[in-house]
Design a binder for these strands. Structure first.
Length: 407
RNA sequence: GCGGGUAUCGCCAAGUGGUUAAGGCCUCGGAUUGUGGUUCCGAUAUUCGUGGGUUCGACUCCCACUACCCGCCCCA
């Protein structure tokens, strides 16, 4: 072995392709039904887009970006796709269309992290973004779509968690409340939490450190900071979302510790988790980002969306079998075998022949592995102008004409 | 960036100091010169991640390196 795939990347081999097709097909069908249109944006963008869009206090921008310089231009492999979709939305003046404008996408994202179970450096996401609707029905629409998609994949054992981060106004107050509540035991928290305290106190709630979590429990942090953060409009929005979800029979859990690592989220945030994955158990993450379009130079535009990790979804889906081909031509006359194969293909069937014209036993062995039926085309068949078709499941053999073959 | 673990054939593996490095799967060939999925037989690692060291002798012991895996952080 000389050159191997780079750390954190994976080959998707033919044996795994049926699963990927299944996921992609289900996505397309689900999103089409809801009138979301597919969009494909570049795999790399101006580095600035992510710094401004995703936010420079995030881990993604601070330590996970694949950035390179080309003729004095700084470019970055996209670490997520919301910023790119918003950029395209603005660049093509799509905010001039009558709202809502709804997109879905699929593609590879890149983050420079230590790989582990459920985490790669190149990974695939399927996501949706919806622009122009302020009402919580958009948040509900998008969550419903996620649940529908997962259901379409046969995944039910998942938990939807929701929270509201409020708008800039209530967040300002919330940050102060949080800082006040945490301050007394700040020195007992982990290093990260201490630095978050100044830079982005909201992220303290995201901490998964055991000691921190125990301290949060002990100081009853949850109840101290919950219920005091949302302004009238935001709490109304959140309440409305819950009403929608209830009416839609979508089960959810409220998790006031749910913050999400991206700076652009406002009001609603949510995550969908599985209990059947390792420690990287988030299958879907998303939320509302009412400020992002404006941040990137567009008109004020409310928006909401989410992304799912395709590799993580795939880990939950049973392995699908590769499809067999319709016919395998068994013959000791290769010219006739190629000709028949070609004719079968032209009639819409998948077909292959043995390239080595080995003994029939070996050819049939191969046929049984990869095809539903074998067409035997030996001396006798050629002389008397017929085909022997063998059903490789039942071993039944019939004398057939070409018309029978393509029936 | 920080912890822990593992590296023997294409895949799954046994072997823990002493002549030829088990076994299974896959692949290929034969039994069966026109009939597979069952069965039987045969073939396939001068070599045990890489480089050093200890030893009469190392896959087995020691050191270093590398790769991969798992966890922390964070996320999909």
């Amino acid at each position: 072995m000389f050159i191997k795939a780079p750390k954190g990347t994976k080959d998707i081999l033919p044996a795994e392709i049926p699963n990927w097709h299944f996921i992609e097909k289900t996505a397309q069908e689900t999103f089409n039904k809801a009138n979301f249109k597919e969009i494909r944006t570049p795999i790399f963008e101006d580095t600035n887009l992510f710094e401004r869009g995703v936010g420079d206090t995030t881990d993604i921008v601070n330590k996970e970006m694949y950035t390179f310089e080309k003729s004095d231009r700084s470019l970055t492999l996209r670490p997520e796709n919301t910023a790119g979709v918003v950029r395209a939305y603005l660049e093509h003046n799509l905010y001039r269309e009558s709202p809502p404008v709804k997109f879905w996408y699929k593609g590879s994202m890149f983050r420079y992290e230590r790989p582990q179970a459920g985490r790669q450096r190149q990974f695939n996401q399927i996501g949706v973004e919806m622009f122009g609707v302020q009402d919580a029905s958009a948040d509900a629409e998008v969550i419903m779509l996620a649940v529908e998609f997962l259901k379409g994949l046969g995944l039910n054992d998942l938990t939807v968690e929701i929270n509201s981060l409020g708008c800039n106004e209530c967040r300002k107050e919330y940050k102060e409340q949080l800082k006040k509540a945490v301050a007394p035991f700040l020195d007992q928290l982990c290093d990260d939490c201490r630095s978050r305290f100044e830079k982005n106190p909201l992220r303290i709630l995201d901490c998964k450190n055991e000691t921190c979590n125990r301290l949060f429990e002990e100081h009853n942090l949850k109840s101290k900071v919950s219920g005091i953060k949302l302004c009238g409009e935001c709490s109304e929005h959140y309440k409305k979302l819950k009403t929608y979800l209830n009416e839609l029979n979508i089960k959810y859990e409220e998790n006031t510790f749910l913050v999400r690592g991206l700076d652009y989220y406002t009001k609603t945030v949510f995550e969908i988790k599985s209990n059947n994955l390792g420690s990287q158990n988030a299958v879907c993450g998303g939320g509302r980002y009412d400020g992002l379009v404006e941040t990137l130079g567009g008109p004020h535009t409310p928006a909401v969306g989410w992304a799912m990790g395709v590799e993580r979804l795939n880990a939950l889906i049973p392995k699908l079998e590769t499809k067999k081909i319709d016919y395998f031509v068994v013959s000791d006359n290769q010219i006739e075998a190629v000709k028949l194969t070609s004719k079968l293909r032209k009639n819409g069937f998948s077909a292959e022949f043995d390239y080595t014209s080995r003994k029939f036993a070996k050819q049939l062995e191969k046929a049984a592995k990869i095809a539903y039926k074998a067409v035997i085309l030996g001396e006798d068949e050629i002389k008397n102008n017929y085909y022997t078709v063998k059903d490789l499941n039942t071993s039944e053999q019939t004398r057939s004409s070409f018309a029978d073959l393509v029936k």
